[in-house]
Each structure stands twice: as structure tokens, then as C-alpha cells.
């Protein structure tokens, strides 16, 4: 099992995630988010899931992040937005949320300690795309259909919300 890549990718993912939530400029946070997703793809690969790693790179770091970049470009953020963001990120704002998520972290970590360690983790062979595909089009074909319904609903609602966005037409529902 590949230890060193796992540790490196985990460290990069954790640090970049912290950088995402503390940046004042949206584009910087977005680029750090791309780093998080790419390093998570590396973590998936180290865990023996190459299919999930490739999908993470192609769909998350590719398609979804392009959508985010497109929206950031359309929003036309400037220097005043950065200053307002710095004003919103005063240190007093972070106390309550940090307490709450620290509590969640402690609770989940104490729960993780009760899990017995894995017996034979050295025998983990990668799970290739073939077994995933056999499951997807075998017992889980209904889930695939439901996911396609979800994507269709997302497409239709994004189109419905986003149309007439400049206020030019009069065709309000």
C-alpha cells in the first residue's frame, strides 16, 4: 500500500481546505478548492479507487470548477468586495463557528477511536472500474436512473432560474 502519497495528499488537502475557508478573494478560494479536489483524487487513488479518482479529476476539478469560475467571472468582483469580505471576516466572527465545528471534530474523532483497526489492510487491492460498472448496471440500475432524474431536475431548474437574467423579457411566470 502506498503510504507516502496518502500522507502527502492528505496534508495538502487539509491545508488547502483551511485556505479555502479563510481567503478573502473568491478566485483565490476557488483555486485552493481545485487543489483540495486534486489532492483528494490522489487520496482516492492511494485508497485503491482509481475510477473514483479519475471521476473526481474530470467531473469535480474539471466541470464543476469551470462552472464556479464562470460564475465568479460573471459576478465581476472587485477591490471593494475584497475589503468588504475582510470586514466580514473579523476575528470575533470565527469564535462561535470554530467552537461548533471543533466540537463536531472532537465528537467524530472520539467515535472513530472506537472503530477497531483494520485487520489486513496490506491486502487491499485496487477496485477497478469493471466491478463498479457491473454493480452500477446490475443491482444499482435504479440508483443510476434516480441520479439521471436528479441531474435532469438540476438542469431544468437551473435553466428556469437562470433564464431572463438580464431582465430584458417580460415573460415572467
Amino acid at each position: 500500500m502506498s503510504d507516502l502519497p496518502f500522507i502527502l495528499f492528505s496534508l495538502v488537502a487539509a491545508v488547502a481546505a483551511i485556505m479555502v475557508v479563510t481567503r478573502a478573494v473568491a478566485v483565490h478560494a476557488l483555486l485552493y478548492l481545485v487543489v483540495v479536489l486534486l489532492s483528494l483524487a490522489g487520496v482516492f487513488f492511494a485508497l485503491g479507487a482509481p475510477f473514483a479518482a479519475m471521476l473526481e479529476v474530470i467531473i469535480y476539478a474539471g466541470a464543476v470548477m469551470v462552472l464556479f469560475v464562470f460564475v465568479v467571472m460573471m459576478l465581476n468582483l472587485g477591490r471593494s468586495d475584497r475589503d468588504r469580505e475582510r470586514h466580514w471576516m473579523a476575528p470575533a466572527v470565527w469564535i462561535g463557528p470554530a467552537l461548533l465545528s471543533g466540537l463536531l471534530l472532537i465528537a467524530l474523532c472520539t467515535t472513530l477511536r472506537t472503530i477497531p483497526p483494520t485487520a489486513a489492510s496490506d491486502t487491499m487491492a485496487p477496485i477497478g472500474p469493471q466491478s463498479v460498472g457491473l454493480l452500477l448496471y446490475g443491482p444499482y440500475v435504479l440508483s443510476v436512473e434516480l441520479a439521471s432524474f436528479l441531474l435532469l431536475a438540476g438542469l431544468v431548474s437551473a435553466f428556469h432560474i437562470g433564464r431572463n437574467i438580464r431582465g430584458t423579457g417580460t415573460g415572467e411566470p
Partner: peptide
Amino acid sequence: LFAVGMLGVLA
């Protein structure tokens, strides 16, 4: 990662 994401959503 979940805790960091929740911190971001809340703060």
C-alpha cells in the same frame, strides 16, 4: 474536511 467545511458554511 467536514469540520473545516462546516466552519466555512457557518462563518
